[in-house]
Computed example of a mutant assay.
Amino acid sequence: MYSSITAGVAGTGFIGPVHVEGLRRLGVRVKGISSATLELAEEARQQLNLEHAYPNFEAMLEDDDLDVIHLAVPNVLHYPMVKQVLAAGKHVMCEKPLAMTSEQGKELVELAAATNLKAGVNYNLRFYPMNLEVKDRLASNDARIFSVVGGYQQDWLLYDTDYNWRVLADQGGALRAVSDIGTHWLDLVHFTTGLEVEAVLADLTTVHTTRRRPKGEVSSFNNEKLRDEDLESIPVTTDDCASILLKFKGGAKGQLFVTQVSAGHKNRLTYDIATQDAAYEFNSERPNELLVGRRDAPSEFLLKDPALLTGLASPYVNYPGGHNEGFPDTFKQCFRSFYNDILAGDAPTGEPPHYATFEDGLRELVICDAIIKSHEEQAWVYL
């Protein structure tokens, strides 16, 4: 059914090809790709076996074959490119964060609302089946939530010689670790629990205030070893790690620790949601597992199995029990939700979409603004 939709992807770095793969697995026709230069686009076209390499982003927008544009480009480009996509009358799936500031985010929400176009933000981690299961259980039990604690840990920026455009405030934004991965956690907690952040108390740390940058850009998660003479020193102001206390509306409390300098943790998102009935513990490095803690009964250790996940998660599980689904599958399932919404058009569905909307993207930008202010003032900041 998705073959009736044609998509284009902007961006040839780490995440652009992931979008291409996820769309193809879903059955969407991905016609072509664009990049900073035609040479980069052509190289990606050949590697991905696509039909077309666009000479620039504007040429992609002029292609009447394309119904949807996926933006997998540096953060600083999200705001202007989203505006261009909407003006061209095409649906848009944008990588997070939605924009560099909440003011930009508000403008994009208003622009999208004035169209009949679908507009999503790729908070793909919602679509691990166990996260959908937790959302389902919390909704059906309607139990009071006491607290949510957890973190997001990576090590790919551990050394001062680790460099990527994300460390630069003018390219990625004033926040880095919080914006890059912390917002995944914040979005996931909102999605699974329905809790809304009311206030934050944040402490940000820049471990490497100076990094040594290669003389020439590198891709994310690039392990290439460079000589000292190939490096130049640059000042860095963005956060390597952060500790954040949260107050949720209704009284629940939260704690979030984010770091990109924690050795051995490659991509580890964790949460523990404590309710009056049970506690739900998830770890993205073991995404097919869910621990459900009990006090007066044996705790459950649930392995992903479509025969056991019959509610919200069921449509987003494609393999039998014992056949693991992981990070690439979350993209496919996120896009499934988004493209289902496109196919539904204006038909009422009776519930909000499961993928993150521009409104969800704006929420994370507003929280990030509060985190920056809280760190600067070393005080609680209410949203």
Rank of each mutant, 00 (worst) to 15 (best):
residue 163 Y to F: 12
residue 287 P to K: 06
residue 334 C to A: 10
residue 39 E to D: 15
residue 166 R to T: 01
residue 269 L to W: 05
residue 370 A to M: 03
residue 55 P to K: 12
residue 196 E to G: 02
residue 271 Y to S: 06
residue 282 F to G: 09
residue 332 K to A: 15
residue 307 A to G: 14
residue 55 P to E: 12
residue 192 T to R: 08
residue 44 A to P: 07
residue 249 K to S: 13
residue 326 G to N: 06
residue 250 G to K: 06
residue 73 V to Q: 13
residue 73 V to Y: 15
residue 19 H to W: 04
residue 182 G to N: 08
residue 173 G to C: 03
residue 260 Q to L: 02
residue 310 T to D: 15
residue 208 H to Q: 06
residue 297 A to V: 00
residue 377 E to N: 12
residue 327 F to A: 09
residue 243 S to L: 01
residue 29 R to T: 07
residue 120 G to A: 11
residue 326 G to I: 00
residue 64 D to K: 08
residue 236 V to T: 06
residue 156 W to R: 05
residue 135 K to I: 01
residue 213 R to C: 10
residue 323 H to C: 05
residue 170 D to W: 00
residue 47 Q to R: 15
residue 112 A to G: 14
residue 203 D to S: 15
residue 360 D to H: 12
residue 62 E to M: 04
residue 337 S to E: 09
residue 39 E to C: 01
residue 253 K to T: 11
residue 378 Q to W: 02
residue 373 K to R: 07
residue 196 E to Y: 01
residue 194 G to H: 10
residue 251 G to K: 03
residue 92 V to S: 14
residue 139 A to Q: 14
residue 51 E to K: 03
residue 1 M to V: 00
residue 275 T to E: 11
residue 65 D to Q: 15
residue 171 Q to Y: 02
residue 116 N to S: 09
residue 38 L to D: 13
residue 179 S to I: 00
residue 160 D to L: 00
residue 125 L to C: 07
residue 370 A to L: 03
residue 268 R to I: 00
residue 372 I to L: 13
residue 355 Y to G: 06
residue 147 S to P: 04
residue 92 V to H: 12
residue 263 A to L: 09
residue 232 E to N: 02
residue 136 D to W: 10
residue 158 L to G: 05
residue 382 Y to P: 01
residue 27 G to W: 05
residue 145 I to E: 09
residue 26 L to W: 10
residue 233 S to C: 01
residue 6 T to I: 05
residue 131 N to S: 08
residue 277 D to A: 04
residue 191 F to C: 05
residue 321 G to M: 08
residue 378 Q to K: 09
residue 290 L to G: 12
residue 74 P to N: 10
residue 306 P to H: 06
residue 223 N to P: 09
residue 293 G to Q: 14
residue 195 L to K: 05
residue 213 R to M: 13
residue 260 Q to M: 15
residue 259 T to D: 15
residue 198 E to Y: 03
residue 83 K to T: 02
residue 63 D to L: 03
residue 311 G to M: 06
residue 248 F to T: 01
residue 273 I to W: 12
residue 95 E to Q: 10
residue 187 D to A: 04
residue 133 E to S: 05
residue 316 Y to D: 14
residue 36 A to R: 12
residue 347 A to R: 13
residue 327 F to H: 13
residue 312 L to D: 11
residue 14 F to W: 14
residue 199 A to D: 09
residue 368 C to W: 02
residue 355 Y to I: 00
residue 187 D to F: 01
residue 16 G to Y: 05
residue 32 G to H: 05
residue 157 L to S: 15
residue 280 Y to D: 11
residue 239 D to G: 01
residue 111 L to F: 04
residue 251 G to D: 07
residue 91 H to G: 10
residue 186 L to M: 15
residue 116 N to T: 01
residue 369 D to N: 04
residue 340 N to A: 12
residue 37 T to D: 08
residue 204 L to T: 01
residue 347 A to G: 02
residue 373 K to H: 11
residue 210 T to P: 08
residue 152 Y to A: 11
residue 200 V to I: 05
residue 185 W to H: 10
residue 346 D to V: 00
residue 202 A to G: 06
residue 341 D to K: 04
residue 244 I to G: 14
residue 2 Y to K: 03
residue 260 Q to C: 02
residue 265 H to G: 03
residue 303 L to S: 08
residue 279 A to C: 04
residue 307 A to N: 15
residue 353 P to A: 05
residue 300 E to G: 01
residue 272 D to I: 00
residue 61 L to M: 10
residue 20 V to Y: 13
residue 103 E to C: 00
residue 333 Q to T: 03
residue 338 F to E: 10
residue 179 S to N: 09
residue 132 L to V: 01
residue 193 T to G: 11
